[in-house]
């Protein structure tokens, strides 16, 4: 029975209501996903509040972590979107902290990876694209549509190029959300499968001798997943900056 449970690698992504709330036919239950979103928010807020409350000239550990995350995101925005992009700092920083904390918290055994749900990552990606479109139209008006019309293209090819540009713009939220979701989903499934191998091999008589092999693989994969967790948060944030740069300078 225990082995059978271990072999079901999808079970970890099941959404289970903790406090059922139904309003007018809508299921608004407080689920395990919601619980971990609250935990992630709490951890990110705790880092920044504790990190900025000391105000030491020579920072301690938490203050260093808070300042490093600030500088990291700040530099990232300045490099990709210029100093003008710094007005989006709160937005990008909040996104980055949410994604990186949910990725890392999701790696803790028995926890729930919020970013392994396509609904969550797609909502974040749509939010980014909505900010890009709304800010671009607010700031540049119809000039924002120049984003889809590259300069120096012959009039004969222009309709095709515009269509291709529109398709590639529409593809952005999809690639942004699928990348994060697929990385987290695949990583968690792989970890679970290798963990299940250990359990099955231990229960398979003489084959228990090779059980340490998948165990070692699980250890390696955990380190690898830690890298992926940080990297995907970075990629999500830097692509947000690149897209925001389009909203700031659509003519490029």
């Amino acid at each position: 029975m225990a082995a059978e449970q271990g072999i079901d690698p999808i079970h970890q992504f099941r959404i289970e209501p903790i406090i059922p709330i139904h309003i007018g036919g809508l299921d608004l239950s407080f689920t395990n996903s919601s619980l971990f979103m609250v935990i992630v928010l709490g951890l990110a807020c705790a880092l920044m509040i504790l990190g900025t409350s000391g105000n030491a000239l020579v920072p301690g550990k938490i203050q260093s972590a808070a300042e490093m995350s600030y500088e990291f995101v700040g530099n990232m925005i300045k490099q990709t979107a210029g100093t003008e992009g710094m007005r989006f700092f709160p937005f990008v920083f909040a996104l980055f902290m949410f994604v990186i904390f949910s990725n890392i918290v999701g790696l803790v055994p028995y926890s729930f990876a919020v970013t392994s749900q396509i609904v969550v990552t797609f909502a974040l990606a749509i939010l980014v694209i909505a900010v890009v479109i709304i800010y671009g139209v607010m700031r540049h008006g119809t000039h924002f549509l120049k984003l889809f019309v590259p300069s120096g293209v012959s009039p004969l090819l222009l309709p095709f190029i515009v269509l291709i540009e529109v398709i590639s713009f529409v593809a952005r939220p999809i690639s942004l959300s699928v990348r994060l979701f697929a990385n987290m989903l695949a990583g968690h499934i792989t970890l679970k499968v290798f963990g299940a191998f250990v359990a099955s091999l231990l229960g398979a008589g003489a084959f228990a001798v090779i059980a340490p092999l998948p165990l070692a693989m699980t250890v390696i994969l955990t380190g690898f997943e830690l890298l992926v967790a940080v990297l995907q948060a970075y990629v999500f944030a830097i692509l947000t900056c690149v897209y925001l740069n389009d909203a700031i300078h659509p003519g490029h």
Partner: peptide, 25 residues
Amino acid sequence: LGGAMSLGFRVLTEFVAGIVVGALI
């Protein structure tokens, strides 16, 4: 390694997303 990996995955998803969006439209 991380940079190369993220770049590779980025290329993959951008490519697939373009095709999928085109097909859906």
